[in-house]
């Protein structure tokens, strides 16, 4: 009897440490944040002194034009960078998936941007975008073109931060897709070649579909990251001009430190968290549906 009980509990006992760590390290802070989002909490107060305001922080946010603007800036930014990075990253991987001499050196060079500290990336681009001494405008002027107001025009500044982010994070997608490409079964590609598939056909109907699971995870990781990027934009534009580059992460940070409204900042973070959860779940759901469809198809083929 006793040993039976013990046996039944053994797996839970082994899981317990992980469970405890999860509760302390993950659920507690999130719970704290959710609780804080219902408070009118100033950083000079202890959390116990803060006033309970219920859903006021959330309702105020939904009516706050600045928050809504920065929400849409975030969406625009995230979708643009992720799409561009996926296109360029996967494209590069497809091009470079071959035996070139010095490939390992090249690969290292390619992933350099993502190894640089974000603050440094921000500063670097800020100087390159500098209206008079920056390399872009100097080159443009040397070639006889008009200088571009990289960071001082609301449309251009969004484009500028997108370019910088694409520069920094394309390598991430590049190495993951390259790894995926190199682990593809060689036999399938060989068969395709023997059947006379052109290079393009190989890419579109074999390589990309086989890479899909990896690509989807990569996309998701980038999307989540793109919603949270802060330092580079902080250094480059600090959200300006106007609110044109003030993404949510920056707005949250300013709300907490400049406006000293911890409750509102927590509410914003929760909204961001919900948005990301919905996106992630949506992506997984979509993936699941596609997989089941495929499995059904395969089963049907096998049966037939």
């Amino acid at each position: 009897m006793n040993s039976l009980n013990l046996n039944r509990f053994t797996p839970y006992m082994f899981l317990a440490p992980a469970g405890i760590v999860l509760t302390i390290a993950l659920l507690y802070p999130i719970g704290y944040m959710v609780y804080a989002s219902f408070l009118n909490w100033n950083p000079s107060q202890l959390i116990s002194e803060a006033e309970w305001v219920g859903l006021r922080n959330y309702t105020n946010l939904l009516a706050d034009a600045a928050f809504i603007e920065s929400f849409f800036v975030t969406l625009k930014f995230a979708f643009c960078v992720v799409i561009l990075e996926m296109l360029v990253g996967v494209g590069l991987a497809l091009l470079l998936d071959r035996n070139i001499r010095g490939m390992s050196v090249l690969r290292t060079i390619f992933i350099l941007p993502m190894m640089i500290a974000p603050i440094v990336v921000g500063l670097m681009w800020r100087y390159m975008y500098h209206p008079t001494v920056g390399v872009f405008n100097r080159t443009l002027k040397d070639w006889g073109f008009e200088a571009i107001p990289w960071l001082s025009d609301s449309t251009w500044s969004l484009i500028s931060i997108i370019i910088a982010d694409v520069w920094q994070w394309t390598p991430f997608i590049f190495i993951l897709s390259l790894a995926a490409l190199q682990s593809l079964p060689k036999s399938v590609l060989e068969a395709a070649r023997i059947d006379g598939a052109s290079a393009w056909q190989q890419v579109v109907s074999i390589k990309i579909p086989l890479m899909m699971p990896v690509l989807i995870v990569t996309l998701l990781l980038r999307l989540i990251d793109a919603f949270k990027v802060l330092e580079v934009i902080l250094v480059m534009t600090n959200g300006g001009p106007g609110l044109s580059t003030e993404i949510l992460a920056l707005r949250i940070s300013r709300t907490a430190s400049e406006f000293r409204e911890l409750g509102v900042a927590a509410a914003m973070s929760n909204l961001l968290l919900i948005l990301l959860l919905v996106l992630t779940l949506g992506m997984f759901l979509y993936n699941k549906i596609v997989e089941t469809k495929k499995a059904k198809l395969r089963a049907a083929v096998e049966e037939g």
């Binding site: 025009d153 609301s154 001009p241 003030e246 400049e258 406006f259 000293r260």
Partner: peptide, 21 residues
Amino acid sequence: IPVWGKINADLGTTLSKVLTE
């Protein structure tokens, strides 16, 4: 005053719009 940070930020971003947009 304690709420100045918020008003200051609003004033600053709005003026930036005046200057750039």
